[in-house]
């Protein structure tokens, strides 16, 4: 049986890859993909932890909810990106620095 720690390592690796993508990418879509990576790392954790709750299946339940929420979140984020592109004619987050001014 695969021990929990393997899941944890993979999950952590996934999270780090996602985080790296979020922090470094020059494209909002790629950042969004990074975020998906990080959410999925979390979901993987839920599912892995669900092994210890076979009766109620709490981990799986939370994973389902998280997937739905992530899907909704991606929808919203894409809508924002679309609007940002309309407004700034770019989706490079480095160029969009109106927060500063």
């Amino acid at each position: 049986m695969i021990p929990l720690s393997h899941f944890m390592i993979i999950s952590a690796a996934l999270f780090c890859i996602g985080l790296f993508a979020v922090l470094t990418k020059r494209n909002a879509i790629q950042i969004l993909i990074g975020i998906e990576f990080m959410i999925n790392a979390a979901i993987l954790n839920f599912v892995a932890a669900g092994r210890f709750d076979r009766v109620a299946g709490g981990g799986q339940m939370f994973a389902l909810f998280a997937i739905v929420l992530a899907a909704a979140g991606v929808a919203v984020a894409l809508a924002i990106i679309l609007n940002v592109y309309k407004h700034f004619r770019t989706i490079n987050p480095d160029k969009i620095d109106t927060l500063k001014n």
């Binding site: 985080l19 922090l23 950042i31 480095d94 620095d97």
Partner: peptide, 14 residues
């Protein structure tokens, strides 16, 4: 720290 760039804020938070 207030560069106005999203990713910088994120790095700071991190």
């Amino acid at each position: 720290f207030q560069t106005g760039k999203l990713q910088h804020y994120l790095i700071t938070m991190l």
